[in-house]
Each structure stands twice: as C-alpha cells, then as structure tokens.
C-alpha cells in the first residue's frame, strides 16, 4: 500500500499543471518524460509526422478517483497525456494506467462496444469509453470522466452493478413457453421478429439506467435497461410469459415511474429507442386493462 501513496503525489504535480490550461503542455512534461513513452520514435513528434501521419495532441483527463482503502471521499485528479486522432477515451485511460498511475481502476473487456463493461460519464454524459473518440470531444478543456451515477462506487470508475442486474433478473429475461416442446424450431415471421428488433440490441452496459434521474433518487425503480429487456420478450410472438412480465412492470416502481426524460435514449451506445420501448410497454398495460 506504500506504493499507492506515491502516485497520488506525482499526479498532484500533474494537477497543478492542469490548473492553467494554457500551460498544460509544458508543466506536466516532467511528469511523464520519465514515465517512458516507449513506442516508435515518430510517436514522439507533436503534430503530424509526415504524410499520412496521425495528428497528436495533449489532452488533460480529469478523473474522479476513489480508493476505498485510503479515501473517505472521491476526489478529482488531472493527468495530461499525448494522444492521437484515432484514440478513444479508453485509450487515454489505459495510457494513464500504464504510464502514470497503475492504481487507476476501470472495467473494460472487449474494448469494441459489445461487452458493455466500460460505461462511464464522459463530460457529464454516459458513454462507452471505447466508443468515444477523443477528437470528438472539446480537448481544449480537460476531459471529465466519472463513474456512472446512481450505483455505489467501489473504486475509481468501477461501480457495483448488482442492483442493476437484480432489476434485470426480476423481469425474467428468458423465453417462457407452456406445453410440449416443439419438434422443430419455433417459427416466427419477419414482421413478428421486427416488432422487438430494437430491444434485442441491449448490451447491459447500464448507461441508460444510470442516466435516469428517477433511478438516481429512487433505487427501487426497475430502470430503463430492465424494461428494455422485458420489452424484448413481451413483444416476442413465441413468448408466453408476457402477462407475468407486464404484471411485474405494472408495479409502483415499474414503467409508471418513467417521466419521459429521454436521457436513456440519448445515452444508449446501441442507439436503442428506449423511451419509445417504455412507452410501448405502458400502452400495452393500458390496452390490457381496456
């Protein structure tokens, strides 16, 4: 644990550099000259290196850090790193972890927008770090990265996903059928498949649920992701458990908690029209009653 204190002080120097944004190019140079940039020599150049080179730039990453063994409260740390036009927020985090502070903790698995591990709040909006290019952000200011909101922070950018998955399990996200198993596949027409196509795209990254102001204040709310995954089965013509699922979502903490804020639809890295899906479940509940 003694080694963990040192990076804190070292990055504090970086923080001083980051304070004056104009000087951020010069001040942190001592910070990571010795950090060993490694790599091929053209990467040392600023700007483009010849024809076809990738432009490089310095970017300050402002991260919300929290180490449960040392800190009582989360705090901000700035790190300045040289990145390239092809780099994503995740690459900057990896670079900081590799070269400046190895204690930086975040989840990532596939790094290509499929596993849904690296949802985090980038400049105040939920994004997948692996799908957010640095060049698309305003890099004249520090890029602010925080853990997703509404779930307990375990360390740095890692949150406890258990409440999220508990809500997911409650809607029974599996095919429910009654009667004898068919001897061949359960045939479904193309329009029937199309009906719930949008909600099959969910990767359970929690970007939607943790962007929802209702979920922040009311942890009992199922949240957009659970409703999306219920929608995927409710409107599946092969499924026979719709009534059960609709009954679960008719709960006080179910779909009626949705205030059509649309943060979820804007946060979804798969572009699922989440608010629309929730509205369809609401309409199905009303139609069932009539």
């Amino acid at each position: 644990m003694a080694g963990e204190k040192e990076p804190g002080t070292r990055s504090a120097t970086g923080e001083e550099g980051g304070e004056g944004i104009a000087t951020s190019g010069a001040a942190p140079s001592s910070d990571y000259d010795h950090a060993g940039k490694g790599g091929a020599s053209p990467r040392q150049e600023k700007g483009t290196d010849g024809a076809g080179g990738i432009p490089s730039f310095d970017v300050t990453m402002r991260l919300r850090r929290y180490n449960p063994e040392l800190d009582t409260e989360p705090h901000w740390e700035n790190y300045t790193v040289t990145m390239y036009g092809t780099d994503r927020v995740l690459d900057a985090l990896s670079k900081i972890k590799a070269e400046i502070d190895g204690t930086l903790t975040f989840r990532r698995s596939c790094a290509h927008g499929i596993c849904g591990s690296d949802a985090m709040r980038v400049n105040g909006r939920n994004r997948l770090a692996c799908k957010t290019l640095l060049k698309d952000l305003d890099i004249s200011k520090p890029v602010v990265v925080e853990p997703i909101k509404g779930l307990p922070v375990e360390k740095d950018l890692v949150v406890d996903m258990e409440p999220f998955f508990a809500a997911y399990r409650e809607v029974m996200p599996f095919l429910i059928t009654r009667g004898a198993e068919p001897t061949r596949e359960r045939v479904q027409s193309q329009p029937d498949r199309e009906r719930f196509d949008d909600t099959t795209k969910c990767i359970l990254c929690a970007a939607c649920t943790s962007s929802c102001p209702v979920f922040w204040t009311d942890g009992q709310y199922f949240g957009p992701a659970a409703i999306v995954n219920a929608h995927r089965f409710i409107f599946d013509s092969r499924d026979q458990g719709s009534d059960l699922r609709l009954e679960i979502l008719n709960d006080r903490e179910g779909v009626w908690r949705c205030r059509t804020i649309f943060n979820c639809s804007e946060a979804c890295p798969r572009g699922i029209q989440i608010t629309k899906a929730i509205a369809e479940v609401k309409q199905a509940l009303i139609a069932r009653k009539l």
């Binding site: 919300r64 409260e73 989360p74 705090h75 901000w76 709040r121 400049n123 105040g124 909006r125 602010v144 925080e146 909101k149 962007s211 102001p213 059509t260 804020i261 649309f262 943060n263 639809s265 804007e266 608010t275």
Partner: peptide
C-alpha cells in the same frame, strides 16, 4: 469534491 451535473438534453 463537486460532482458534475448530468448533461441531459431537452427532455
């Protein structure tokens, strides 16, 4: 430390 405001849009 000051947490940031979620930057939601029109909705």
């Amino acid at each position: 430390p000051v947490g940031t405001l979620y930057r939601g849009r029109e909705g």
